[in-house]
Design a protein around this nucleic acid. Structure first.
Lengths: 206, 206
DNA sequence: GATGTAATTCTATATTCATGAAAGTAGTTC
DNA sequence: GAACTACTTTCATGAATATAGAATTACATC
């Protein structure tokens, strides 16, 4: 969730400051009072208190009251836990959870299509042309054989230049054509352990 | 060195920002262009470029030129390496390297001593009194037996109240006294695997 | 209870920095 | 070469924050 990002930001922000890192280094040697840290670091006590507060919010330190002293100690486990979290499970892609990863595609489509969804012009750049092709590909169902005439019929919804679209779909491997009969089908792409794989299932007619 | 801290700060600062974390999440899925990231994140391209620059300085991403595109990719190794560095060797105490960890002691000593080094008053707080005692303890060499008379002679350099000093040194375990003969020696503290340990070696006279 | 001490919270200030607009750069297409 | 595209850099601005001093709180000592 978005919460995941916020938690990480709080954690990394806590560590992203020189004096706070030094405090961690000092507390790694032994628990210490605010005054001790302040004199060692040559900064004000209120400043140290502020830093310790931020470190505490991130779960990195905690205080033990001792008289009117606050003896702060390092939570070594917190660092280790976070390191493992980053290292072990690849939580990295999880950071992008809940984001519209198709925003770019939508932007390209709307830039090259008119209100009715027809293509105004073919993008020069292959990267954007592929977005168009992938979109049009959605009109074809996997596992069905289409005659060339039928293919052209469908493509005509997007552009008068059906020949270019048809050829591009084949060239880029989105669709395949039977050698002699002039039948087309959508290529199935299944992500295998070693990259993409194409499969050619049996075909009913549309 | 101080360099160690700076490097870590650069690294953590790079990760301490929501959009940069999201960029990492997106790049973990596949390498992408600046424009793609910008549209997905709904921020300007210059902003994304700025973020990528910071991530690059931290060694987290790198760009591959492709036409006039810059395709950025994640350096998964960098994260893992840093995680291991934090986790494995306890580099934590190393963060405090080159800092005067005795600043607090000096502050206490100068607060309770006059110019000649004599104690003006005994601190009420045990914490600070211990600083005084540890300082005076430096006058006694380990492995040597002192008569009570000799001990008083040495303590008299610091305060007329040698009795309080002598008793405190023993009470806090800094020095030990032979039952009948009235001989004193400095207790050796060696940090063993299970905390502190006291040892009582053989003694020559001073 | 009065005094003193350590810590925290409050307030003000200076610095850092995320952001986007505009200008500049590099590479592509015609 | 002219027009275009993606990207980067520069610049200005608003928000976040590190810092220290002042006020406040919590506790201890006399």
């Amino acid at each position: 969730m978005e919460n995941q990002v916020d938690e990480l930001v709080r954690f990394f922000k806590a560590l992203a400051e020189p004096n706070r890192l030094r405090i961690i280094g000092l507390l790694a040697q032994k628990p210490q009072s605010v005054e001790q840290l302040a004199t060692t670091l040559h900064v004000g006590e209120s400043t140290v208190s502020h830093h310790l507060s931020r470190l505490g919010e991130a779960g990195l330190v905690s205080a033990r009251a001792e008289g009117y002293y606050s003896i702060y100690a390092l939570h070594t486990g917190a660092l280790a836990a976070m390191a493992k979290k980053i290292l072990h499970e690849d939580a990295l892609p999880g950071l992008a959870l809940g984001m519209d990863v198709d925003a770019y595609d939508r932007k390209v489509l709307s830039a090259f299509s008119d209100a009715s969804g027809r293509i105004k012009a073919f993008p020069v750049q292959e990267k954007k042309f592929l977005v168009i092709l992938r979109h049009i590909l959605g009109e074809f169902e996997p596992g069905i054989r289409y005659s060339e005439k039928r293919v052209n019929q469908i493509l005509a919804r997007y552009s008068a230049d059906t020949a270019t679209l048809r050829r591009s779909l084949v060239e880029h491997g989105f669709m395949a054509r039977e050698g002699g009969g002039g039948m087309y089908w959508r290529v199935q792409r299944t992500a295998g352990p070693h990259g993409e794989r194409e499969s050619e299932p049996t075909f009913p007619r549309e």
